[in-house]
């Protein structure tokens, strides 16, 4: 069983939901990445989404754009990010690591080279923001051959036919983007999310994570009551921005604790 599947299986047994933080690898500098990954796990994260910085993050709001720019000042490359995952694996062989980023760095590296390196580094899943299912059949086949899960986005505007198409390709989990717009935007509507997650579950057999707009313990608790996982990006990145290389890791560990306790108290009721 893959690390992602077994993580969800264990959580389900315990009656808990997955907490999935995102941060941009290399922000504020490459040396901080691995300590930050461990800090997130200590704080209660179940799966880590490691952002691969890109020069043109079209689907991201200002918070994650800035983090990408900070990481690129140090020239953080896809090769380096894979290396960070490999270093993390030296002392943590259970927490799943998912790479999240844009298509072009992967196109540049080549699918086979990428999938081979990612597998060797112990990476469990890949989410490419600008690869909708119809444009990435070759990459998905390549990832499968290397036992890596292909994770896809779904949105409020995804038709049932598209949800079904994603359901056929997706493994690991699917990531439901709960708001129109870019990362870091607006406020989340729990009832709307509940309806959409139910619709997705009708067509998709893997767990459903929800992200975009989850910024505090209260929203985390509310959303985790209706989904299998919550994804927290902008809030984590803001803490890193505020704390920098000195305090960033400590701050995100505290944020994870806040979300973790809110989520676990929510499901206990």
């Amino acid at each position: 069983m893959s690390r992602i599947a077994s993580t969800f299986a264990h959580l389900a047994q315990a009656g808990r939901k997955a907490l999935i933080p995102f941060f941009t690898a290399g922000d504020p500098d490459p040396a901080s990445a691995v300590p930050m990954m461990h800090a997130l796990v200590r704080g209660g994260a179940d799966i880590l989404e490691l952002g691969v910085p890109f020069s043109d993050p079209m689907a991201d709001g200002p918070v994650i754009q800035r983090s990408s720019e900070r990481a690129l000042v140090h020239g953080t490359s896809l090769t380096q990010v894979i290396g960070m995952a490999r270093d993390f694996r030296k002392t943590d062989n259970t927490t799943p690591v998912v790479l999240m980023g844009y298509a072009n760095p992967i196109e540049r590296m080549g699918y086979e080279t990428f999938a081979t390196a990612a597998q060797q580094a112990g990476i469990d899943g890949v989410l490419v923001v600008d690869y909708p299912p119809e444009e990435c059949e070759d990459l998905v086949a390549c990832l499968r051959a290397h036992q890596i899960d292909a994770i896809f986005l779904l949105s409020p505007t995804s038709t049932d036919a598209r949800v079904q198409a994603v359901g056929r390709l997706a493994s690991g989990y699917v990531y439901y983007v709960s708001l129109r717009g870019v990362t870091g935007a607006g406020h989340i509507d729990t009832n709307e999310v509940a309806t959409q997650v139910a619709r997705i579950r009708h067509h998709v057999s893997v767990p459903v994570g929800v992200g975009f707009g989850i910024r505090d313990g209260a929203t985390a608790r509310a959303i985790s009551a209706v989904a299998d996982a919550i994804v927290v990006g902008s809030r984590v990145v803001l803490e890193i921005e505020a704390g920098g290389a000195v305090d960033g890791a400590a701050r995100i560990e505290v944020v994870m604790q806040e979300f973790r306790s809110a989520m676990d108290s929510g499901t206990a009721h």
Partner: peptide, 11 residues
């Protein structure tokens, strides 16, 4: 092709 996030596909 159509290399965009899922959020833009419907539009």
């Amino acid at each position: 092709g159509t290399f965009v996030a899922e959020t833009l596909i419907a539009a």
